[in-house]
Structure formats: structure tokens, C-alpha cells
Design a binder for these strands. Sequence first.
RNA 1: GGCCCCAUCGUCUAAUGGUUAGGACAUCGCCCUUUCACGGCGGCAAUCGGGGUUCGAAUCCCCGUGGGGUCACCA
Length: 521
Amino acid sequence: MSVRTRFAPSPTGYLHIGGVRTALFNWLFARQHGGQFILRIDDTDTARNIDEALEPILEGLRWLGIDWDEGPGVGGPYAPYYQSQRSDRYAAAVEKLLASGHAYRDYATPAELDEERAAAQAAGKPFLYSRRFAAFDEATSARYASEGRAGVVRLKMPREGVLVIDDAVRGRVEFAWEREQDHVIQRADGSCLYHLATVVDDHDLAISHVIRAEEHLSNTPRQAFIAQSLGYPLPTFAHLPLVAEPGSRTKLSKRKLDKYLKNQDFKQIMEHGLKIAERIGLAPEADTFNPVIVDFYREVGYLPWAIDNYLALLGWSFDDKTEYFTRDDLIRCFTLDRINSSPASFDPKKLWSMQDTMMVALPVDEKLQLMLPFLVRAGLLTDHPPADAVETVRRVIEAAGDRLKVAGDILIYADFFLVDEPVMDEDAVAKRLAKAGTKPLLQTYAAAIEKLDAFDTASLEAALKQVVADAGLKVGDLVHAVRVAVSGKTVGPGLYDCLVILGREKSLARIHRALPLCADA
RNA sequence: GGCCCCAUCGUCUAAUGGUUAGGACAUCGCCCUUUCACGGCGGCAAUCGGGGUUCGAAUCCCCGUGGGGUCACCA
């Protein structure tokens, strides 16, 4: 039997980092076995704007390189891949379950159900529906209907025995049938619910392995019941450990951003992202600008494979040492039996570190291609920048070296090269230029580099050392001042690299322009 | 609360009965250094508790304890 896995997102408008981990594991498993990875859209509930709410999810997956063999955009032999378009299959399954006595029509009102639930709770007993308004034949149905009651279809769960699931991650798991509710599978309006739909689809699409998060483990009995009642063989289940909050074991949730921001590591990642977002005019208040959502990383300029690689290690490991994988290596190494069963908390610092390592290793040309769009969006470059501007950026990237952690960092390191006049940071000026004695030093250095034969890093450095030596001072007394004078800030690539990239003329102009900011001494 | 799952450094994890319990991130110290960053060297740091089984337990069993998930006409 060929391996077929699926990722079945609901069109919610965003791709959750935990969802990506699930998708990734399904994808890896399918790729390793030469099987198919299917994308199915579980939209049984949401009726409106599916396209709009789905696009960010598809885009996120594409960006991450998680490609699907069947599903939206690519079609496939089992189309359609939207649950909203498969309702006739579900209706047929419901009829079959009704006919075989595995389900029944129920006419209890929500209030009557609440009453039973409250009574059970008062008695300290687990709630189990009495089936008081169940209709097992047409006549009873008709009678309830004539009373104005609306009917749903419920599963008629077994009330004895145990279900044994052999989970690929957790091993043998047992459930007592008597603890299972008579879940609703079809609403009063005839539409079907998730559990029914997912079982029918997994069977119809010939899914061999259902790899999903642990939160679905307790849903498994009702799904197994539906499958068995319909005569379907059970797929292999693999329940993944939850992706938990930083420093905790609670499920990671998009809505708890405020809480996570109290975590220093998380906060740092967010604030760094915000700094970049601000420069490219992104609305940081946007719902999706959140490190729990994949969009955040794409917009800030992370490398997609860094996300994949990091996420692969959340709940899975290859051995005691290997942490960095190429795409092919990961596909080759991945196995279900090395998936962990305890929750794994999301550590933004570890992700950052992998991102850092991968970005450093990236060839300059590739960095350039990733970074240019950020400069365009920030208005520092035009849509089709002239070759000399691109060359400047390339030289900045080389000079900045490993200071560039994400593509968006180019905005912090390249901005002052690309404008006529750098923005002078007040604190930087106060700290490095306003000091007494700085002005004559700068003037002397300006005069020295004006006369330099070769305007290169070695000559610039030698000249600077000569100037401070003549004045009986230290390198630090001048180098910081020059940096602020030409760039407006205290941090950046190596100073001599900056001067060379700017060129003699601009460097001199900037130093002269900064002189009035110095204290008169 | 019922049911289910889980339990090794702060975090991700390795060790599938025999290791001084290993690695990575974070952290701390030192070195390098014109800023920032990188890098180098070193340090701190864990088997939840109690009983068994065994020559021997992080590993197997039981009981506690703790954490988590789930209990919808959501997915």
C-alpha cells in the first residue's frame, strides 16, 4: 500500500507554527516513502471568504517548501479537496450509518441536553446522553418533527468494551467505549460535522497514515467508530507531541501573544521583527504579525529552511548530535519511531540561532536576492535599481558579514549608504561627537584622507592611527566619532569598510557636515 | 471532575538494563576587538518522589506527585 498523508487545515487566515510542524512531518513521511502528500481543506464550518482565508496558509506552505501532490491549485485524482464540496459523500455516509443502526436521529433541544448534563454533574457522574429523544424509526421522527423539533444525527456509540489503538508514536492506547458520547455528526440543517467528514475523506482519499497533533488523540475513538461502522480499515495513527509555549507545556496559541511577550526571548524576537516591520511600512498591529504565525518570519526575512529545520527538531531527533539537515537529508533521515511523545516547547532563541547559522553560510549573491526586496519596500531603492546601487548593497552585505541575521536586517545596515544624508541619531551624536576635542581630530583625519593615494581600508586605518598617535590619543577617541559622522549611528560594519563603500567624496562631505555637531574646543 | 497522554540540565534532546548521563540553544567567566556581530577557550546545569524486579535501573513494573490534552449542532 502506498503511503499517502495529508494536512487538513481549516481556512482561518493564518498558518500556525504548530500546524506547520504537523504539515512538515506529514510531508517528510510521504516524501521519504515516495508517497503522496495531500492538502485538504477542512471547511465544513466556515462558509464565507474561503479563498481569502486560505491564501495565507497556502502561501506559507509554499514559502516553506512544503509542496503538495494533490489539493488546491494542483487538483488530483480524488478531487475535490474542499470539504465544502464533498457534502454528498458525507450525506451518503450518514444514511449508511442510520441504516445500519450505528447512528440515530435525535430531537432533543439544547436546553434539554443542558438539563441532563447539569443533572449528571450534580450527581457527580460523567454525562452520557439518555437517548430520550432518539428516533430509531420514521414514525417517531415524524412525530417529533410535527412537534416542531429539529433533528440532528448522532452516533450510537457502543456502551461496553474497549477500543485499542496502536499509535505509531505512543504505542498501545486503550479507550473504554462507555466513556464516549453520542456525538452529533449531522446538524439540523443537514450539514455534517468535522469528525464524520474527516473519516469519510481520509478513506475516500486513501490516506494511509494520519499524522496529527496529540490534541486529536481523544477524538480517535469516535473516528474509529465511524470508520469501523462504515466498513473502512483504520489508517495508521501517529499522534505528535504538542508544540508548547516557550518555557511551558501548555499548547502554543496565537491568542496569548501578550503573555508570551513577557518571556524575554520571545520579546526579543518580536521587537526585532517590529523594527523591520516599521521600516517597510508593515502594520505591526496586524493579527498575523506574531511569532506564533508563519507570516511573521516571512515578512521579517527568515530563511524558510531554518524554520523547517528547527521545527523538525521539535518532537523529533535523528541522533545525539545532528541538528542541521539539508532538505534531502531530512527526508532521508526522518522516521516516525524517533518522534518523541512528550510536549516540546517552542524556543525562539534556538530558532534564531539556527537562522543565524544558516544566514551566515548563505552565499552573498543569494543574500543579495533576498535583501533587495526589503530595500525596495523601505523606499531605499527603486523598483528596478541601477546597477551601481545594487553593487553598493552587495558590498554592504559583504562588509556587514554575519551581522545580518535575517534579510530584513539589511535595512539597519545599508540605509545610510543609500541616502544623501544619513539620519543622525541624537544619542549617538551626544555620545561620540559632542565630546570636547573631537572636532579638531575629525578635521585632521579629513585632511589626511583627502590626500590619501589609495582610498582603501589599509590606508584609512593607517591614517587614522597616525592621526591619533600624533595627538597622543587612542584609536577609540577618533574611530567612534568618524563612524557617527558618516553613518549617524554607533553600530554598523567595520568603519574602514564603510568609508570605502561610501567613497572618498561622500565620506569627506559627511565628516564636514558633522563638524557643526561637535563641541567647539 | 471523567477519560487519555506525558515526565533527563532553564529549553530542544541523546543514551532502547552496564557511559565520569553526551550534544545543542540559552546563561556565566576569560580571550579577541574601533562599535556591533562573529569567533576561541572554559564553567554552571538534569534522570520528579517512593517502592519493587535485577548482580546492575534514566531505561522494566506498581503507587504517588506534577504537568498537559480533551470532554461543542468548532476544526
